[in-house]
Amino acid sequence: MVEFSPELLETIIRAAALIGAGLALIAGIGPGIGQGFAAGKAVESVARQPEARGLITTTMLVGQAVSESTGIYAFVFALILLFFIIL
């Protein structure tokens, strides 16, 4: 059994929190792909039906904002790891 000094333990915890914050932001891939997909489909719909532009834009924004939430959760946890565990 190896005994660590408290300073070393604190450093390890901080390093792990920083790595975890970086890893948490991998979750940004999902909403990026999803939002791009929604925007592409909206462009297709506007090209097919230009008169429904306003409705399509509103629906796209609402759907994107809902699908963004997974990325936002990851962002919140990354911020918690960065600022609350390190401080």
């Binding site: 904002a65 963004e68 936002i72 959760y73 962002f75 919140v76 911020l79």
Partner: peptide, 16 residues
């Protein structure tokens, strides 16, 4: 939980 974290995360993330 998801309902409130979505709003909180967006506004807090924006302010940060």
């Amino acid at each position: 939980i998801s309902h409130s974290f979505r709003l909180f995360g967006n506004v807090f993330g924006g302010s940060v």
